[in-house]
């Protein structure tokens, strides 16, 4: 049973401490497992103890997202392949990510949040950030994708011709 008023102290990799409500941490499979399995004293879950590089700045963003989504239903629904889509990101989440657009380190921030969501097992946040990245790929040409993803074409001409033939079959 989750006691919403129970507070949990989280320690980040760079030594900061943040105290949050269990109402937020219940969305993190990692923190809930740590509380349950490790019988942590004083409800403290030292994040750095599990080799997760979650710094204070990233954790603050995670907590901001958790605060907005504190009432989301649990468990997070599993998606089938049919249901996977990237165009259904809620408006608040879009604005949340958009805030980083003004920062030079937007990409690093997004990666840091994705990694944190994965390590902390916050499925809703991981899903949303993965969709955000997928949306940066969707609708782009092959050349644009190479540029965005910073990848070089390493196919021979023959290989590329074969793939284009296969893709054409599929597009038709």
């Amino acid at each position: 049973r989750i006691y919403p008023l129970m507070r949990v102290t989280l320690t980040t990799s760079d030594g900061a401490s943040v105290t949050v409500s269990r109402q937020l941490t219940k969305h993190s499979g990692f923190i809930e497992k740590a509380i349950t399995d490790m019988a942590v004293d004083d409800n403290a879950v030292p994040l750095s103890a599990v080799a997760v590089d979650v710094d204070d700045a990233t954790l603050k963003l995670v907590i901001e997202w958790l605060t907005e989504h504190r009432d989301d239903a649990l468990p997070y629904p599993e998606k089938t392949d049919e249901e996977r889509r990237a165009d259904d990101i809620p408006a608040w989440d879009q604005a949340f990510v958009q805030k980083w657009d003004t920062k030079e380190d937007q990409q690093q921030t997004l990666y840091a949040v994705i990694t944190a969501a994965d390590k902390l097992d916050i499925k809703g946040l991981l899903d949303m950030t993965c969709k955000t990245l997928a949306n940066k790929i969707n609708g782009k040409t092959v050349e644009e994708m190479r540029e965005i993803l910073q990848l070089e074409c390493d196919f021979t001409e023959e290989e590329l011709a074969e793939i284009r033939k296969e893709n054409a079959w599929c597009e038709n």
């Binding site: 996977r84 990237a86 997928a134 092959v142 994708m145 190479r146 196919f155 599929c170």
Partner: peptide, 15 residues
């Protein structure tokens, strides 16, 4: 997993 159908086809040509 979240990339759409056309995006998947294009990704096959990237590398």
């Amino acid at each position: 997993n979240h990339v759409d159908y056309k995006g998947l086809l294009a990704l096959r040509e990237v590398c």
